[in-house]
Amino acid sequence: MRPVVVVGDVCTDVVAVLRGEPAPGSDRPAAITTRGGGAGANVAAHLAGLGVPVRLAGCIGDDAAGAGLSAELGGAGVQLALRTVAGTPTGTIVSLVEPDGQRSMLADRGANLRLRPDDVPAPGPGDHLHLSGYTLLDDGPRAAGLAALRAAVAAGCTVSVDPASTGPLAGYGVDRFLEDTTGSTLLLPNEDEARLLTGCADAERAGLALAARYRLVAVSLGADGALWVEGTTVVHRTAHPAAVVDTTGAGDAFAAGLLAAWLADPGAAPADVLDAGLALAARVVARPGAR
């Protein structure tokens, strides 16, 4: 199995699964849990769980949360390249989950914004780089993300990029993001991100437009499954059945499952690669938390 270097955020997720109807100005029942999160850490943890050799490059604060997350990820089999940033808290994400499983997030990225180019290990022969788009969408870690991507492309490594989130992506600029990620092998947007990046109203058309820029595109469609687009070929797979509890981290799980299958056999049928991602996503949405 080819080794993977993941560059991205390490965070604590505070997940509040809300009950009942909204109650502005009053109380609303919720089941609240605290778990490990961060897009980069989620992908790395899932890859390790699937037996993929994986190293995670990122930053944590000099606090109990950072120490706990390091211990958790190391215990899960992730090789750690995490720098501790003095005087800065570890990132925290508050996820508010509605009864139907949809969520909104409040982000304090903390030490993740302090990532530097020298925090990312140099790619080795045959490595794969997975870059979380969050690394590019803020001026703090952007130089590190760009340096990692350029070094991987120069070394002949394959590269996957997750655009991360429509809000920050729109603020950052579509053209800027597309230029930054030139040379990437595989783009992993969700449907909304694919539409934003192309201006296309239809997910399939958006995937085809992106496939004119990237060799491979995998578009996650939530309850509608996912698309694999290569050139002018489009493969659709339906979502795996799941009793949805929390969609937090579903995209990260999909990315990890897909990557593990694709890296194990780059010639595998696209339907099988998509199914591997969808299967892991279905397991994750059936419980609170991203991993």
Rank of each mutant, 00 (worst) to 15 (best):
A269C: 08
D252P: 05
P163A: 00
L137D: 02
G183E: 04
G231D: 09
A286Q: 06
R116N: 02
C59A: 13
P288N: 06
W228I: 00
P53W: 02
L278F: 10
V244N: 09
L69F: 13
P89I: 00
T247Q: 05
V10Y: 12
G110T: 03
A154M: 02
R283Q: 14
C11K: 06
G20H: 14
G145P: 11
P266Q: 11
T90R: 03
R55I: 04
A39Y: 00
D202T: 13
D202E: 15
P89T: 13
D192S: 13
G51T: 11
V10A: 06
D118R: 08
G110F: 01
P125Y: 00
T90D: 01
L80S: 07
E230N: 08
C11S: 15
R83L: 07
G251V: 03
A30P: 11
D62Y: 03
A45H: 05
G171T: 10
V229K: 10
A269N: 12
G207S: 07
V85D: 00
F177A: 01
S165V: 00
V244L: 13
D63L: 09
A23R: 15
V7S: 09
V52E: 06
D275M: 07
A279R: 14
P24G: 11
G183R: 09
G77T: 04
T158M: 02
G87F: 12
G199I: 04
G249L: 05
D246P: 08
N112S: 03
R116V: 03
A239M: 12
G101T: 03
A282I: 07
A209K: 06
A243C: 10
T158G: 03
E98G: 03
G36S: 04
A31I: 08
L50F: 07
A209S: 14
G173M: 07
S132P: 07
N42S: 03
A31V: 15
S184H: 06
D246W: 13
L280P: 07
V159L: 03
A268S: 15
D9I: 01
S26Y: 13
L47F: 13
G101H: 00
G51A: 12
R195I: 00
G277S: 14
A152T: 01
V229T: 07
C59T: 10
L263C: 11
A239V: 13
P24A: 12
A279T: 15
V54I: 09
D138V: 04
V153P: 03
A276P: 13
A65K: 01
L278K: 04
A271L: 08
V273P: 03
L227T: 02
L50C: 05
D139H: 14
V52P: 07
A170K: 08
A281F: 06
L178C: 05
R142Q: 13
G126Y: 08
G8H: 10
V10T: 13
G66V: 00
R83A: 14
A264K: 02
L210W: 11
G37R: 01
A290Y: 02
S160R: 00
V153L: 02
G124V: 01
A255Y: 01
V245D: 01
A41S: 11
A253G: 08
G267T: 13
G40I: 05
A203Q: 05
R176F: 00
